[in-house]
């Protein structure tokens, strides 16, 4: 009973405090870089597409609003042939960013995504892909992956030995 009264008193006191919210269009809030807004696809420091179409983001998406089709280019790099996010379904939970093994998919502090036509909420790969590396400036997945691509043959990755000579007789 006392706690109820105490609660009522605290809430009543709130009536004389500064408001936490701001009057949005006139005053713009400063958002943290970790704010979960519009989703982008980033590039690695070399400018290559970071997304390797591993399907983990689409798998983890609780509203199933990400759809990808993987394919491979002539250099052996796997990339998404199509990458579509239906933002009219997206709940901006950020699980896709958490699941991404290459830090390709990132949420940005841009939340101004309202549209008059729902169709405009469907973002294709060209709408998602940005020019830079986003929040992570270093990571380059193919440098640490075992897969060889053009420009990084077997053994040229980070922490990799030269390929084994299988015909060597040395023990």
């Amino acid at each position: 009973m006392f706690s109820i009264l105490k609660g009522l008193w605290i809430v009543f006191k709130h009536g004389f405090r500064k408001r936490e919210t701001v009057l949005y269009p006139e005053e713009r809030p400063i958002l943290s870089p970790r704010y979960r807004g519009r989703i982008v696809l980033t590039r690695d420091p070399d400018g290559g597409e970071r997304c390797v179409a591993c399907y983990l983001c689409s798998a983890v998406c609780p509203v199933d609003c990400i759809v990808i089709q993987a394919t491979e280019d002539e250099n052996g790099r796997r990339y998404p042939k199509s990458f579509r996010i239906n933002f009219s379904r997206c709940i901006y939970c950020g699980l896709c960013e958490e699941a991404c093994p290459t830090t390709a998919i990132q949420l940005t502090p841009d939340f101004e995504m309202a549209e008059y036509d729902r169709k405009n909420m469907v973002y294709e790969k060209e709408d998602l892909l940005i020019a830079g590396p986003g929040k992570n400036h270093e990571y380059n997945f193919y440098k640490v992956a075992g897969l060889a691509i053009k420009g990084k043959e077997k053994g040229q990755g980070i922490e990799e030995n030269e390929p084994v000579d299988i015909r060597s007789l040395m023990p």
């Binding site: 809430v11 009543f12 709130h14 009536g15 405090r17 500064k18 408001r19 936490e20 919210t21 009057l23």
Partner: peptide
């Protein structure tokens, strides 16, 4: 709004 530190319809 007032008691929840926000504005409410304004």
């Amino acid at each position: 709004g007032l008691w929840q530190l926000r504005y409410g319809p304004n």
